[in-house]
């Protein structure tokens, strides 16, 4: 259906066959990593690191900051880089081995909760997310890592700390967005029995919702396509994996699909109580930026049908059935 290339990593940690397996297979000599492999010379004083936008890329870049003895000011995805005055840049190659070492360090010092916070924050679309995660890792490794384990405070408990607070709030934003996807994702059944959902989240949250959906719908094969981040999650028989997608392939809906969508819109329209009309409240809970992919919100015709059915017009049945 969708042209794809294999893409695995942390984000797919829960995947039964995909990402988890790649994480397990990490046998490579580590000595070579310790020597700087990039352009040699003195550490650059004012530098931005450019990575490929994935969590692995960001963690590799954080690892390289230690290798080069540099303190980068910014971390950017390749495409969105705008240099500051006098700023140089390094393009960091994504290396899963380096990323895994960052993970190991974070888990050793702060526990898996700390690593998960950094991972979740790195999924955010916020341009400052990379730098925030870097500051957070620096704080955990350099400040707390030097203390004996008995003298380390709980990292995520320090919610007012200038290095922890941004990551905690980014994590909350990302998890909120993941929850919105659990709420507002809408599947459509395609010819041949595949179920497809298209979504436009403001963070790369597909990896965070795949466990939920592949457990819940383990009897139906489905794909969730994120049109913003071009990531697709595919699930079959309760096992899932992630892929990169370049475009959404057009598949025809199955025959019952349109009927069900209409029935749902009819239900949506009849569930409202007019005297309590309060659209601001609805917008607060269901942001307008997501409406395009929510069945009942993206169909202007549906309201007309619902009203016709409710007012008992003679042709209402024809409208609904046909």
């Amino acid at each position: 259906m969708i042209p794809m290339q294999a893409h695995g990593g942390f984000a797919g940690g829960g995947g039964a066959d995909g990402a988890g397996g790649e994480l397990a297979a990490r046998k490579r000599p580590q000595a070579s990593l310790d020597a700087p492999s990039g352009p040699q010379g003195a550490p650059l004083p004012c530098v931005a690191y450019l990575y490929d936008g994935t969590a692995e890329g960001l963690f590799s870049a954080i690892f390289d900051a230690y290798v080069f003895h540099e303190d980068p000011e910014d971390f950017f995805c390749d495409g969105s880089y705008q240099p500051r005055l006098g700023q140089s840049s390094r393009v960091i190659a994504t290396d899963e081995e380096k990323a895994l070492r960052v993970r190991r360090g974070l888990v050793r010092v702060g526990g898996s909760k700390v690593f998960r916070a950094a991972l979740h924050a790195s999924l955010s679309d916020d341009p400052q997310a990379g730098a925030a995660v870097y500051r957070f890792v620096r704080y955990v490794m350099d400040d707390l890592g030097k203390r004996p384990s008995s003298a380390r405070p709980s990292v995520m408990g320090q919610l007012a700390h200038p290095c922890v607070a941004p990551v905690a709030s980014l994590e909350r934003q990302v998890l909120n967005e993941a929850h919105r996807m659990k709420q507002f994702l809408r599947f459509r059944q395609k010819e041949g029995g595949l179920w497809v959902a298209v979504c436009n989240p403001n963070a790369n949250v597909i990896p965070l919702v795949m466990d939920h959906f592949s457990g819940r719908f383990n009897t139906q094969p489905f794909a969730i396509y994120d049109e913003v981040h071009r990531v697709v999650g595919i699930s079959q028989d309760g096992r899932w994996r992630l892929s990169r997608a370049s475009a959404e392939a057009e598949l025809a809906d199955c025959a019952a699909e349109e009927l069900m969508a209409q029935a749902w819109c009819v239900y949506y329209d009849s569930a409202s109580i007019d005297v309590r009309y309060h659209p601001e409240l609805r917008r607060q809970f269901m942001p307008m930026r997501l409406w395009g992919n929510i069945t009942e919100m993206s169909r202007p015709r549906a309201h007309a049908i619902g009203e016709a059915a409710m007012s008992g017009l003679p042709n209402a049945a024809a409208l609904i059935d046909g």
Binding site: H179, K182, Q183, F184, H212, G215, R216, F217, N218, T219, Q220, G238, Y268, A271, S272, I273, D274, R276, Y277, H278, P279, E280, L281, R282, Q284, F285, M286, I294, E296
Partner: peptide
């Protein structure tokens, strides 16, 4: 496995009517 669906402690709202 083999069953459709799950439930979560906090629940999950799937849509909001015009009255919020």
């Amino acid at each position: 496995r083999g069953l459709v669906g799950s439930a979560s402690q906090a629940g999950c709202c799937h849509s909001f009517t015009p009255d919020g």
